[in-house]
Structures are given as C-alpha cells and as structure tokens.
Design a protein around this nucleic acid. Structure first.
Lengths: 225, 225
DNA sequence: ACACCCATGTAAGGTGTTACATGATTAG
DNA sequence: CTAATCATGTAACACCTTACATGGGTGT
C-alpha cells in the first residue's frame, strides 16, 4: 500500500541500518554523505520518521546514555529521540535493495541506490548500473536526433548548452562502463544466488572501485540552506 | 501578488518571445530545447498559460490559418489556440532577464538562464556565469572539508560517488571559466542591448561560445532531472 | 474502420519547502 | 547571561505529476 516511492524513506532506512540515530544527526548525514545531490529539510524528515514508525519499521527510543552508549558516542552528547531500525524495517529495506524497476535508473533514485551499493548484492548492483546506462543511452539518442532536426534554428548558447549536456551524459556513460567492468572483473564466477531467495548480504564480493577504510563514528557538519 | 518563482513561466515567456505558439508545440520545445534537464507535463503547462494570460502577459488567439500563417507553418497544421506575448509580457520577461539573485545560480534556474543567454545582455551573462561559478566553488569547498572529516567511515561506493560528484562539479567550473573568458574576450566594450522587436533575434554583442580546436570545455551536471 | 498523433484541459495527489513555534544545552 | 547550536516539530503552500476526460485530423 502506501504508494510511497520515497527516496527519503529509502535513505533514512539505509542510514539507520548502519546505526541508530536521532533526527538532527540523520539530517546532517543525509546532507553530507548524499547531500551533494539532494538536500532535505526537517519539514520532510520528521514527518517521514513518524510514518516509518507507524509502519513498524522504526522504533523511537528516548536517548538514554545508559543503555545506548553507541548513540551517545555518535551524537557526541545525549540524544533526545533515537530512531532504530526494527527487524521488519531491516527486512523491508533489504527488499527495497533487491528490487529494481524503471524508477531505479532515474537520476535521484539511481544516486540513492548507488550510495547504498555497499549493502547491495553484486548482481543487483550490475543490474542497476546497466539499467542506468541504457537509460542514458536512450537519452543520448533522443538528444542526437532532436539536435539534428533543430540545429539550424538554435542560437549559439542553446547549442552550447545542448553540447554540454550531451557531453555530461556521455561522461557518465563512460563512468558506468568502468564501474560495470570493475564489477565483472571482481572474481567473475559466483554470479547470483543459487538459492533464489535473498537475504544474502553483499559482503565484499571482490571488486568495487578502490580504497579501503575502517569505521569510526564522527559527527558531521551542516549543509543547511 | 504572483509570488511565482516560476521556472516554467520563465521558459514559456522566453519561448513565446521568439514566436507565438500553441500549447502542444510549446511543450515539445520545452522538452527538446531545454528538455535534457527538465521535462514538463501538460498538467503544469496549461494552468501556467492560463495564469500568464490572467497577468496580461499573454493573449490567447484562435488559430486561424488565415491571419496566422507563421503559427500554421510551425505546427505543420492549423493550430487551435495560439499564445502570443503581449507588450507587458515582453517587458516583464526583459525585467526577469535583467535581474540576478541568488536563485539564478542554482541548478535549474541557471540552466534556464543560460538557455536564454541569446536574449541576455553581456554584463548580465557574465554576472550569472560568475555567480554560478562561485556557487559551485562553495559547494566544492564544503564537499572537500566534509570528505576530509568523514573519509574513514565511508565505504568504497560512497567514496566513489563523492569523487565522481566532485569531479563533475570541477568540470563544470572549468567550463564556466572558458565561457567567462570567452565573454570577456569578445570585444570588450559594448555591453548590454537596447531592445529587440518582434522576432528580432537580439544582441549579438560579440562572443558567444565558439568551438575552439584544442580546448575541450567539459561538463558536468548530473543530479538534475 | 481503426489506430495513432495532435490538441486541450481538469482533479487529485505526491513530495517536498518555508516559515514559524518551542525549548534544551553548551561556549564565551 | 547571552548567543549559538542542538533538537523537535507543525501548518501552509509551492510546484509539479498522474490519470483521466474529450475530441479533431490523417494515414492505411
């Protein structure tokens, strides 16, 4: 039900999967980790949290430092309301991660998906990357024919805009090509789950882009409007 | 009154400035000329046209092939309702073109502004380009510091996303640099433009972007839609 | 005759923002 | 003690989309 396509919901579930947090902190994370691409305001975040609690995907806990040293450490101080993913919430998020529809190739959806590739199984990752790529190629096709037809009556600036736009898209396609190849390269065999059903957490799988790091919580900064 | 920030309005006025059109045709133009970046639906276009007529900026005319050969030619057949910019509408659009606010540097606004640079005086063009550039530089700054602080706890994919985002922005900055230089280079004096009547394609003012051998302006601007 | 683009509209709803209201906690 | 930041929320509304309703014109 609910018919929420919910980019925000997705992001919230994904972030809370990593660790419980309160709203304020959550928003900061949204606007830094993913925030180059999209900024959310409290006016949408808090109602969203309410909804998710209503669905049974989150719980609200008062921020007691006692039983919640982790959250306290994360926030750097005692938190007021800590949101935590429930078992159902986790399951739901994993379903979301596993399913791919035409939506997944669109700009914002795609970016979100990518941001959580760390939790995504490789076959889904590849499907999403390829879907995105063909979406972009469609777009390029359209731009080219439309440009061919209207080139004559466009002024220099409009043409430049068009050119710049196409180049951007082409660049992203090349990027995707590299990523896809990189995914395939990372120990080729072992595709998908023989079991058919999921749950199988991605875990490593070999070859993402590069680089490695530990994990240390640290409050992040503001990006507010 | 009005309080419409109206990207759509801006685009409609701008397109109708070039020549009268009916809604259907208008929408196609919106979604090709400018359409890589943004697509509008009839559900927003027609109400917008009504509003603009209400403001006195457009007139609705029945599409009579007799007195309106131009529209007929454009549409390829007899048009139903032709929208035409009034004198007030034209004046209003020119005001919009002349004013630059912090809005003008944001993604969508900027793209729209750029699309109508052909009608914009050079000093305004430069102001917009520079405003955009410093907006992007701000953004880069934020990304860098935020990245420096959080690098440790980000997984490879998030990092890659971040990296790609920054590279995109950096590319757009380089693109802007070239455009700005190109504007400055094009016969320095002679700024601004008196007016253009009817479908007078305005301004020339010297130097739009030229394709130069050897330099490859480069884009970036995903994230939009 | 049927299908398919042209062409115009409207009602309902989704998704998010702005501006406001409120207060606790920390730093100078 | 005062200012800034942390922290949570709500009401109003901006802006656009989807799905629907309707009908003319043109090609096969």
């Amino acid at each position: 039900m609910s018919r929420r396509s919910g980019i925000l919901e997705f992001a919230v579930l994904g972030l809370l999967r990593e660790s419980p947090m309160h709203g304020y902190e959550l928003r900061k994370r949204l606007n830094t980790s993913l925030g180059v691409f999209r900024a959310f305001s409290y006016g949408s975040l808090y109602p969203c949290l309410k909804t998710l609690v209503g669905q049974g995907w989150l719980t609200e806990e008062p921020g007691n430092a006692a039983d919640d040293a982790l959250a306290a450490a994360l926030a750097g101080r005692r938190a007021k309301i800590v949101y935590r993913l429930t078992a159902e919430g986790k399951e739901h998020f994993e379903e979301l991660l596993a399913q791919t529809g035409p939506d997944s190739w669109e700009d914002e959806h795609f970016t979100m998906r990518f941001a959580f590739f760390g939790q995504t199984s490789r076959d889904v990752r590849v499907r999403v990357l390829e879907g995105r790529r063909s979406r972009l190629e469609e777009r390029l096709e359209k731009m080219r024919t439309s440009l061919a037809r209207t080139r004559e009556r466009l002024d220099d600036y409009t043409l430049e805009l068009q050119r710049h736009g196409m180049e951007s898209v082409e660049r992203e396609v090349r990027w995707l090509n590299e990523l896809i190849e990189s995914e395939r390269a990372g120990r080729d065999q072992r595709r998908s789950d023989p079991a058919g059903d999921s749950d199988r957490q991605s875990t490593d799988t070999g070859g993402p882009p590069r680089d490695r790091g530990g994990t240390r919580p640290d409050p992040s900064d503001d990006t507010s409007s």
